[in-house]
Design a protein around this nucleic acid. Structure first.
Length: 132
RNA sequence: GAAAGCAGGAGAGGUGAUCGCAAUAAUGAUUUAUUGCAAAAAGCGAUGAAUCAUUAUUGAGGAAAGUCCGGGCUCCACGAUGGUCAAGCUUGCUGGGUAAUUCCCAGUGCGGGUGACCGUGAGGAUAGUGCCACAGAAACACACCGCCGAUGGGUUUAAGGAAACUUAAAACACAGGCAAGGGUGCAAAGGUGCGGUAAGAGCGCACCAGCAGCAUUGAGAGAUGCUGGCUAGGUAAACCCCGGCUAGGAGCAAGGCAGAGGAGCAAAAAUUGGCCAUCAGCCGCUCCUUAAGAAAGCCGCUAGAGGCUCUCGGAAACGAAAGUCCCAGAUAGAUGAUUGCCCGCUAACCUAUUGGGAGAGCGAACAGAACCCGGCUUAUGACCUGCUUUCACCC
RNA sequence: UGGGGCGUCGCCAAGCGGUAAGGCAGCGGGUUUUGGUCUCGCCAUUCCUAGGUUCGAAUCCUAGCGCCCCAG
């Protein structure tokens, strides 16, 4: 299961903005960056006006995590499905952009452990107070 | 029955359901732009764009990979054609195939295998240069041990002679002859046998191997036969020589067009230019910058040296003709999750058997399109089909 | 996409056809009352992997694996 297009982040400039302005939360095999939304950077009209809820997410998996594209695709699908479960019903007053990035050490851990780490990091950022 | 060889097939076992993602199409709704009717507004209509909803269709591989070759396509540079030189090329037996190739098919020679069959970078080493460690006499022309003492000279002995001296006499081995044998080494100057000789040697002969010439045969690489004189190691994936081929540079991040800004020319003609190769027709035109750091304005962008079926030509690679089909186009990058039924396989253990375990479990390998094709290479669990070989047993 | 380079002992490395130098580290002995210093010795079965050329490859050729760098 993959997030629908309006919940993803598009374009080089958006990622550049998150990397510069976002607040970083670390754990052993994952880090996430959270930034308030900046819709002026999105030029694509088809996506700009639509917003299902107040989040946009991106999952970034480096070549160093695994050389094989199949493995990286599997990780991406697992993460997207998990994020859809957690964030689809949440609503906040502001819009936020979230970037989730895997470190190379995450290959050895199973997906269950990694998803727990994501939950921890999201609650650190202040989004998942109730669910935990 | 066992062990092999070759060729091919197919690649989450099949088929449904629910949810989800992407693209396209249709319908409807909303918003918006242009425009028509209308004096204007309201309203109605047309066209386009965006979003949402519903429905339908489609949605990765045999290697999508490595990016190792060859092209298509695009722009820049460039008068045309031919030749020479330089440069580059794993280009290098023959004939064919292909858009092209370092690819494919068929054959020749050589090598491997009992065989089916497999492999093959397969021009030139008297065009030249280099290298061949250690060992060994010597690594390209040499003599350590050894063999000989024909020929020349000498010493000693023997025989003859009174002596000088003489001798188809013997021994020694100085000059000399030899390269058979030993030893060295990956490799030592064609190999084996017989003759021959002082000893030897292609010195002579027979067979084998190699070279040259001739004949026959084949499209050719070659094959077969006869004759000849006996012939100077290896290495060119060392430099090189010969023959052949290539002709520039960049690469879809190519590039093109909307759009934006600036400058100039022209003001309904003419000229120039564009659509467009020409006529007609239409249009204000030209130049520069920009047109995001790869999508996020559009095109390029998926109809292609395309797939499938059948026929014909060919030994095959492949070619020709006909019919039929449309089969991914994303851009932080779409293919996933759950599950029903059928099908296939299965461990420990129990039992002692075409069994239970099993109304359970598993259905797995390599692996993810990014402008597109053809090839090569590499990765790949379990499986299916056909042909062939060897061995064993039975009839 | 295009181009360039490197893999040799635990680490740094030399060698580019003929027995794989050297330093650091490690281990053992000696010197010393002990430690350090000094000194002697040991330490590469496979030179990233697999084929090939060669009498003989770390070295030459081909294919693969891994790592790094440059250009836009």
């Amino acid at each position: 299961m993959v997030l629908p297009k309006p919940m993803r982040i598009n374009g080089y400039k958006c990622f550049d903005y998150i990397h510069k302005k976002g607040v970083r939360y670390n754990s052993s095999s994952i880090f996430i960056k959270v930034a308030p939304a900046n819709p002026s950077l999105i030029n694509n009209k088809s996506i700009k006006d639509r917003s299902i809820n107040s989040f946009r997410c991106a999952v970034s998996i480096s070549n160093k995590v695994s050389k094989r594209a199949v493995v990286r695709n599997q990780f991406r699908r697992i993460f997207h499905e998990h994020l859809q479960k957690r964030l689809l019903k949440l609503k906040t007053s502001k819009e936020f952009w979230i970037l989730i990035s895997l470190r190379p050490s995450s290959l050895d851990k199973g997906p269950v452990i990694l998803l727990r780490e994501v939950d921890k990091l999201l609650s650190k950022a202040g989004f998942l107070n109730d669910s935990l």
